[in-house]
């Protein structure tokens, strides 16, 4: 599942559109501001590739919309931008499940062998890592189950690879231009 060239081209197109929009901020601010604008436009371009079908892209769009609403609207033109920006991502409350788990824990604590202990430990570690992954992937806390989280992570990684590839080639081209 390497990033395809069509994906790259699409991303480049979107990003170009975004850069056009944020050009004023690129022109007359310091490096950090410029960097922020470039990164924002790249992120929005990446998120718009998925057209709001994935959780992470929706979360990313929402996050960038709080920073630059106009840019997001422009890049998302054609796609239902309003609904994507204003769509409330609901975090599912699984209170009852926690209660059940707690009660289970109490009942299990009484009889535990060494292997069970080890299994519980491994389970805890995996849970921790899953939480870590949730915090790394945008919108991860809205993904209800592990399967969805892994699926979104797959998609997110491919998109990130596309983004990095394109950005790197642009940087290379720019550097080559300057070196000349």
């Amino acid at each position: 599942m390497q990033p395809t060239s069509s994906m790259k081209e699409e991303f480049l197109k979107k990003w170009q559109m975004g850069l056009e929009i944020v050009r004023p901020s690129i022109d007359n601010t310091n490096v950090s501001e410029r960097k922020k604008a470039i990164k924002l436009s790249a992120d929005v371009a990446m998120a718009s590739l998925r057209k709001g079908t994935t959780c992470w892209s929706r979360a990313l769009i929402q996050k960038s919309a709080t920073e630059d609403n106009f840019l997001v609207r422009q890049v998302l033109s054609g796609i239902k931008a309003e609904t994507l920006i204003n769509k409330k991502l609901t975090k599912k409350v699984v209170c009852h499940r926690k209660i059940v788990r707690r009660s289970k824990k109490i009942s299990r604590r009484k009889s535990r062998s060494a292997s069970e202990e080890a299994a519980a430990k491994a389970k805890r570690i995996v849970k921790k890592r899953t939480q870590g992954l949730r915090s790394v992937v945008p919108g991860g806390e809205f993904m209800s189950n592990d399967v969805l989280l892994l699926q979104e992570t797959l998609d997110y990684i491919v998109s990130l690879q596309t983004q990095v590839n394109v950005m790197r080639s642009i940087v290379d081209a720019a550097e080559a231009e300057i070196e000349r």
Binding site: V31, R34, K35, A37, A42, I157, L160, Q161, Q163, V171
Partner: peptide, 15 residues
């Protein structure tokens, strides 16, 4: 990958 994006955008900002 996220850091790379950050870095590349930084680089682009510099250029």
């Amino acid at each position: 990958l996220q850091r790379q994006v950050e870095f590349l955008s930084m680089k682009l900002a510099a250029v």
